[in-house]
Design a protein around this nucleic acid. Structure first.
Ligand code: MN
Ligand code: MN
Ligand code: ZN
Ligand code: ZN
Lengths: 147, 147
DNA sequence: CTGAAAATGAAAGTCGTTTTCATTAACGTG
DNA sequence: CACGTTAATGAAAACGACTTTCATTTTCAG
């Protein structure tokens, strides 16, 4: 009942679809795309519409429980919000996202913003490349171009 | 003639359109989108096609003179490559991109990648928020929600 | 010059995202 | 509970940046 109450205070209603979508999102791996969540939700209730999943993902962001992540591959992913900001290592081959702690950097970024009179709303720290798993695979397949 | 030679060594040909597009790109503010460059090029030669501008921007990237920048607003921008990696402060209101030095951070990112056996190909360091100019405007317009 | 290969421009295609619209459901109120 | 207002839903269409296709033109090495 907690989520329902929370939503009410913000002027939103609870529905069976919404309940299912929210629960599925929080149970799945963070960083899901609309399609991925849609597929999962459909397994549990095949009548839920794509736009409903999309709208609820947006809603989850609006109420501050997730944020959109854009990695330049044309697909928006949704990342559960945690207290700790973090960075992402993004594998260009398997698309996996590995998170890493970023505390060391935050001071620097904050100061930089300040110096420029820039009001920060969010940060994005990303390393693109190839994950350990893919590096193995790739070096087996074809010499070792990557090491 | 320098660029023409350079292209030839890579198997590409020089054309009047290409020449115009390349020159326009390097004269404009970095971080242009296809549309922005297209508009500029059309001012100088209104018969150049959109796809030609697009293809040449891709080419500039392929030969290593620029890279794509994605900020999650659905528009790809093209950033001239410089020896120094840098971060971007991205104004959510006026879309301006302010660059900042990022040397302090690179060590940390390199080490982080290493620890995870991740092979880095590129980095993205971004601060999203509101630039000095927009902050002024906004606080005039409506109290000072932003300070 | 000539011919093979690359480049161009217009138009069409792609694909994830977003909006529209008619209908249904939620839920505070009486 | 019944009601009325308002939000939510699902299907389909619209959107828009990006990418490809294809017929034609241009480049440039030989
Ligand atoms: Mn994350
Ligand atoms: Mn830049
Ligand atoms: Zn991988
Ligand atoms: Zn601004």
């Amino acid at each position: 009942m907690a989520m329902k109450e929370f939503l009410r205070t913000k002027g939103f209603k609870m529905t069976p679809q919404r309940d299912l979508i929210f629960k599925s999102f929080f149970e799945m791996d963070r960083h899901v795309s609309v399609d991925e969540l849609y597929d999962r939700v459909r397994q549990l209730n095949s009548s839920v519409g794509y736009s409903t999943v999309w709208r609820n993902l947006k809603l989850i962001c609006k109420i501050g429980l997730a944020e959109e992540v854009n990695l330049g591959d044309g697909v928006t992913r949704y990342d559960r919000v945690t207290k700790v900001p973090h960075g992402h290592m993004y594998c260009l081959k398997c698309k996996e996202l590995i998170e890493f702690n970023v505390d060391h950097i935050m001071d620097f970024l904050t100061v930089t913003a300040n110096e420029n009179n820039f009001l920060p709303e969010g940060y994005k720290i990303e390393i693109q490349g190839y994950c350990a798993k893919c590096r193995e695979t790739m070096s087996e397949d074809n010499g070792d171009r990557l090491t």
